[in-house]
Design a protein around this nucleic acid. Structure first.
Lengths: 142, 142
DNA sequence: TCAACAGTTTAGAATAAATATAATGTATTA
DNA sequence: TAATACATTATATTTATTCTAAACTGTTGA
């Protein structure tokens, strides 16, 4: 299978052994047509629904973190009770709908590049994230 | 005392009764010359060190949340294991030093206004936050 | 091919932040 | 000042995440 091989490759490049569980996680995360946002709990649920492989929470945490270290996933900076991850690791930003607890991508082209004029000696910027919190616009309903 | 009155006023405006504990929390949060960042645990520790008033965790949580609802404090959007709050509620952004776990303010003037061209029907933007993660710049040491 | 090793998975325990509870205490009001 | 409504507190609970140690599996090399 071409896909499976791809995942095995990806895992090897990450220094991870390609196990049943990890390949399944890859399938869920990287096989979709579209990128998506997820929490660990959601990911476990998706795997449960799609496969007859049992994957423990610990394995999912470990693998997601390994993929993050390798840059295959990124965490979305949100003050939520649980962490949200993103399979879209290209440079982009997010709306967070506080009422529906939903994340919406903002394409890089839709935000002027954030230009920070200040620097910190000895430090470099690793990433810049914009989170725009949105709520219902009741103005228009009055 | 003028300050105390100020706090009582602030509390009343928030719909909160001015109790010993809450006034103490106000003193710590709003009496400083400078604004600052804190976690709940840090706030409790500061109060313990400064006063001979005992304040329970629950009260601190409740009061901080009440102040947040009123806009006297804001939460900094960070994926940390604990929430960081900011007494500076004016519009500004943050560096987050991932190695030292430290937040640094970026003044509004140091960032061009973030202009998001995309809108979501029926929603309005409530806040826009920029988090720039910084790490040691080893380039310059080579 | 297979033994041995190193890395992996897992259930369950541990940790820690945040929230809920319910009894006791305090500010407010009339 | 008494009655009431709101606050505080210690403690228990909840929940996400991390840790642990035993059982298991992929890999390597003979």
């Amino acid at each position: 299978m071409a896909h499976s091989d791809q995942y095995i490759d990806k895992l090897r490049k990450s220094g991870l052994r390609p196990t049943k569980q990890r390949i399944k996680i890859c399938e869920v995360l990287f096989d979709a047509d579209k990128t998506f946002h997820f929490t660990i709990k959601e990911l476990v649920k998706i795997i449960e629904n799609q496969a007859n492989i049992k994957v423990s929470l610990a394995t999912v945490y470990n693998t997601v973190h390994a993929f993050m270290r390798k840059g295959y996933l990124k965490e979305i900076p949100l003050n939520a009770s649980q962490s949200y991850y993103d399979t879209n690791v290209t440079h982009h930003h997010h709306f967070f709908d506080e009422e529906e607890n939903k994340l919406i991508d903002i394409h890089q082209d839709d935000v002027d590049e954030v230009n920070i004029k200040r620097t910190i000696p000895g430090k470099k910027i690793r990433s810049v994230e914009v989170i725009a919190k949105i709520v219902s616009d009741n103005q228009s309903q009055k």
